[in-house]
Amino acid sequence: MAVKLPLRFRILYLMSTKKDSVKSEDIMKELESDYGTEGQFKKKAMDGHLISMRALGLIEIADVSIDEKDELIEEYKISELGISRLKYLPKEYKRA
């Protein structure tokens, strides 16, 4: 893939390729190789993107649980609105 997408676009694209829901940590792992060296690539910032994208309706909560550290773990999937926004991605990111 030629152009690197803005992080938020990439998160949405990643979710569009997944059948199952994803956690913040999963996204971090998958995008590590492309964005890992950048200052913006932090867990807190990632959580912030996800919670805003959910409020805006681009993604939905698929499941939520509490882990052993008593932290809330959300699992997200792309919403219909999110899918409709994929048209803004560059050609090489569009799927048939």
Partner: peptide, 18 residues
């Protein structure tokens, strides 16, 4: 620059929402 988002400028401006 400080919060590590400066590379996003160029990436974003090439997209329709940008």
């Amino acid at each position: 620059l400080i919060n590590g988002k400066w590379r996003e400028y160029g990436r974003t401006i090439r997209t329709k929402p940008g």
